[in-house]
């Protein structure tokens, strides 16, 4: 049976009244990630907006066990949980490490790469709000070209994002996927699939951030969807090397109706200073990436 809103479990692991901004897609994505794991999980979280969601001592908004860990150490913390559980003979729990793009692309890349190279048995989820939002929106390795942030305040960022999912795929992982908070069922299915696989599984989740990207919080879902419709974000999974477009990205590919990336950019205040040249550069980048995905998606024809 296909997962839909009607048959999806009602059990919640994220409690109402948490500290995240109204309309935060991280909160939405996390709800569905934990549903997919049915609470049978130990989570490790570094400094990030997600730490804020988890709450302030002695109260947490989350009903699964969790270990907060210093910013750079998420991958290693996961390894420690796995090693500890193994030493104690507990085999029923999934270890989930979940960090922002700063904690993944930048300061945490070493520990993550180490854990992935060791093929440690856990799911790593990077939720990507394309900046250091917890500290007030500074540039990260995932902040796009031209975007204004606290540390690219006037000129916008001068460099492109790095493709972290490709970097993780290069580790030879059994499962690598992308997801988007605007497609919670696709996210849910991917986490469920990842749960059943052994080894290091990596999922990148695109999570629009209303204050950081400067759009009204009511538009979170629409902005996430625009990212998919324009190819800014692409939904796919790579299972033991086999590439597949999923959900809305598969449908855009089939219909061939990719929309101009400008439609995604103009909705956000962070891109207000983009030059035409930068828009063209971003479009070229999206086109190249989209084409690479189409070339790999052998199941489309």
């Amino acid at each position: 049976m296909k997962t839909n809103a009607v048959n999806l479990t009602e059990t919640e692991y994220v409690l109402p009244g948490n500290r995240l901004c109204p309309g935060c897609s991280v909160s939405l994505a996390y709800r569905h990630i934990l549903k997919a794991l049915e609470g049978q999980v130990i989570v490790t979280v570094p400094a990030s907006c997600l730490t804020v969601l988890h709450g302030m001592y002695p109260v947490t908004s989350v009903t699964v066990p969790c270990v907060n860990t210093p910013f750079a150490s998420t991958g290693a913390s996961a390894t420690g949980l796995i090693a500890g559980l193994k030493a104690l003979g507990r085999t029923d729990l999934t270890v989930l490490a979940i960090a922002g793009d700063g904690g993944t692309y930048d300061i945490g890349i070493q520990a993550l790469s180490g854990a992935a190279e060791r093929q440690d048995d856990f799911i790593y989820i990077c939720y990507d709000n394309e900046g250091y939002m917890n500290t007030g929106n500074q540039r990260s390795g995932s902040t796009p070209l031209g975007a204004i942030s606290g540390t690219t305040p006037i000129l916008g960022k001068q460099q492109n994002q790095k493709d972290m999912t490709a970097i993780m795929e290069a580790h030879g992982l059994p499962y690598v996927a992308t997801a988007n908070a605007s497609y919670p069922l696709d996210l849910y299915d991917k986490v469920r699939k990842a749960r059943a696989i052994e080894g290091t599984r990596f999922i990148h989740v695109f999570t629009p951030c209303p204050p950081g990207w400067r759009f009204p919080f009511s538009d979170t879902i629409r902005i996430g969807d625009l990212a998919i419709q324009t190819g800014w974000d692409i939904l796919y999974e790579v299972e033991n090397g086999a590439f597949r477009l999923t959900s809305a990205s598969a449908s855009v590919a089939r219909k061939g109706n990719l929309r101009p990336v400008r439609e995604f950019l103009v909705e956000q205040g962070r891109f207000k200073n983009l030059t035409e040249e930068q828009i063209n550069q971003l479009q070229d980048r999206v086109n190249a990436r989209w084409q690479r995905c189409l070339d790999r998606a052998t199941d489309l024809s």
């Binding site: 109402p16 302030m56 947490t60």
Partner: peptide, 13 residues
């Protein structure tokens, strides 16, 4: 710092 769950951790949002 050991925390247990509670609804409305941030108050009445």
């Amino acid at each position: 710092g050991e925390s247990s769950q509670g609804i409305g951790e941030a108050g009445r949002t």
